[in-house]
Design a protein around this nucleic acid. Structure first.
Lengths: 142, 142
DNA sequence: TCTATTGTATGCATATATTCATACACTGCG
DNA sequence: CGCAGTGTATGAATATATGCATACAATAGA
């Protein structure tokens, strides 16, 4: 019934808080991919599907998709569609500062996980909550 | 000898990810107030302080401050400065009733976000790393 | 009163975001 | 081949964001 593309499409929501539409789409798709809703190789919703579903312009959606492709998160194939990259690049487009912050990221990640288990929390629940807090900071009405 | 204004000012950081500058400032100040770094009645950094500190225009900072005042989060007083509202407006539209275990989940989530931001880490990067670590535990290729 | 500080305001210029309309190029399939 | 679906591209129009310079207005304090 529900293909991955439909789940992704149904999860997209726009707010009117000043954040550019293409940024909202980009970040939300990034969240869905990072959370595994759209696993590597999965087909992403069509640019036109997103445009019609969110009632925005095709070029605006394309802006978001291009950003994601530049980051290596998705792959765009003309005539075929868009797909989650087989080897998702979580580092970003050009991560120049691989200083102490890089290791602190792993440190904090593993520490957070152990703390979560200690507190009897499901890691996936925590991740989901984190994604909500970061992407849906202050919302208008649903 | 760190005044609250200095702590707030020092916590502000800008990214070049397409999010308007005034939105970044607004959301970060909102977060600092919500976390109690700037408690009710505390003085906020001067618009000019933020403008100089972040190297952006005074009007841009003012845009952020006006948004926060419109939300009732801060109070602007000409000639005096800006102050956190005594009775901060509720941050979310409708704070969902948190169960006993959900509250600890929310607590840990927001605490993790705070720590990540204080460490200068991108929340999305942390989330991605967490997602990787949890999926690897279930048996995937490195 | 004078001065420094701070929020408020305006005008101009440039860059970006968004929409609309209209195409073009590539792919798989009948 | 012809067709439908999908990504790619362009040009015009409008709105917003940002920076820069220059002020004005209110407040506290010397």
């Amino acid at each position: 019934m529900h293909t991955i593309e439909h789940q992704v499409l149904a999860a997209l929501r726009l707010k009117r808080d000043g954040v550019p539409i293409y940024v909202q789409i980009r970040e939300q798709l990034l969240d869905l991919i990072a959370r595994g809703v759209a696993p590597p190789g999965a087909r992403m919703p069509t640019m036109r599907q997103v445009a019609v579903g969110l009632r925005v312009d095709l070029n605006t959606v394309r802006h978001a998709y291009e950003d994601l492709q530049r980051q290596g998160v998705i792959v765009l194939r003309r005539g075929l569609g868009s797909f989650v990259a087989e080897r998702p690049a979580p580092a970003g487009p050009v991560p120049p500062p691989p200083g102490p912050e890089e290791s602190s990221l792993d440190d904090m990640a593993s520490r957070v996980l152990s703390e979560a288990r200690q507190a009897g929390l499901e890691p996936l629940d925590l991740i989901r909550r984190l994604a909500e807090l970061t992407s849906m900071r202050k919302g208008d009405e649903p």
